[in-house]
Amino acid sequence: MKNALGGLFMVGLPGTELDDSTRDLINRYGINNFILFKRNAENPEQIRTLCLELVAACRAAGLGAPLISIDQEGGTVARLKGPHFTEFPDARVLAESERAEELLVEYAKTCARELLAVGINMNLAPVLDVSPAGLGLFMERRALGGTPEQVARLGALVITAMQENGLAACGKHFPGLGGATLDPHKVLPVVDRSLEELRGCDLVPFAAAIRAGVAGVMTSHTVYPQLDPDQPATLSSRILGGVLRDELGYDGMVVTDDLEMGAIENDGTVADAALVAFKAGADMLLICHEHVKIIAAYELLSRAVGGVVSGERVRRSLERIGAVRRRFARG
């Protein structure tokens, strides 16, 4: 069981080549899911070489082909830029065009073609947050609109187009970051919408994404007092278990947002947060930067298995991740 726990983590690596520290995470801890950033990308040939090295290292360690992800939303959040990759405006711009559906399908198909060509098999997109314009909300530019109907329709369209073209999609940030004014990279936001607003607005695009067969759902590092006054969604069994699993009926892969964000790390260690998130219902624990924190989280989770975490719980999460890997990871 111990080495299998590595399959529950998605991690960043420091540079443009497969380094000794990342190789150690693969060989010693069985980690075989990765996230790439600008720091890992110089040009398509280099990115493809890096991804092939990750695949080969995982294979040599007896692990499944890795899920390799990136944030390629377009606009303000796009890790890969021109001239080698197509640059799109913010999702909001595409969504408000008269040709919104055509442009968003083109975006999704282009992402699939360009990312798969360099070995990336998962896009941490689309954003499914409902964010009305003109209110100073943090997600306004990245959102597909300000009404649940529009975000649900266009989000499902993007998911379907990406996944039909072989690229896993991950809808974010559950249960909805659209009402936040603060940036969870730095501090812990609060979205104090009523249960009626949350159900009638924020949850609607996620329900549509689930119906569309989205490969993954990413959690929000945000407190929703009407759902759980004590914990942000990432760490809340009421939200991940009660709302996402039970109320919306989602049995797919749940991915945390980066556990090194200020919203989480300001109040405790990454390792503690990883354990709480897993117990709350997350399957994939995302840690994007420091490998020492990844190892600490792995070791804490390892010690918890057989105690506060059952082997059956680990097995179910690995099955959910494995289903995505079988469908989208090649190599």
Rank of each mutant, 00 (worst) to 15 (best):
M1Y: 06
K2G: 09
G7T: 12
M10H: 12
M10I: 07
V11K: 07
L13H: 00
P14I: 11
D20R: 14
G30L: 03
G30F: 06
K38A: 15
R39D: 15
P44C: 09
E45M: 12
E53R: 15
A57T: 11
G64T: 08
P66G: 14
P66C: 13
L67M: 14
S69P: 07
D71H: 01
G74A: 14
G74R: 00
T76P: 01
A78L: 07
G82W: 00
A95W: 03
E98L: 11
L103Q: 09
V105C: 09
K109D: 11
T110V: 09
C111E: 00
V118A: 15
G119Y: 07
G119W: 04
L124M: 12
P126K: 01
V127H: 04
S131E: 04
P132V: 11
A133V: 13
L137P: 00
E140D: 12
R141H: 10
R142E: 02
R142K: 10
V151L: 08
G155H: 05
E164Q: 10
A168V: 01
K172H: 13
H173D: 03
P175L: 09
L177E: 01
A180F: 07
P184N: 14
H185I: 02
V187A: 15
P189I: 13
V191W: 01
R199D: 04
G200H: 02
V204G: 01
A209E: 08
I210G: 03
I210T: 04
I210K: 10
V217H: 03
T219I: 13
T222H: 01
P225Y: 15
Q226I: 00
Q226W: 05
L227G: 12
P232K: 00
R245F: 04
D246E: 01
D258K: 04
E260N: 10
M261T: 01
M261A: 03
E265S: 14
G268N: 02
T269N: 05
V270P: 02
A271F: 08
A277Q: 08
H289A: 04
I294D: 00
I294H: 07
A297F: 00
L301G: 04
G306F: 07
S317A: 15
S317R: 01
A323Y: 12
R326L: 09
R327S: 06
R330G: 12
G331A: 13
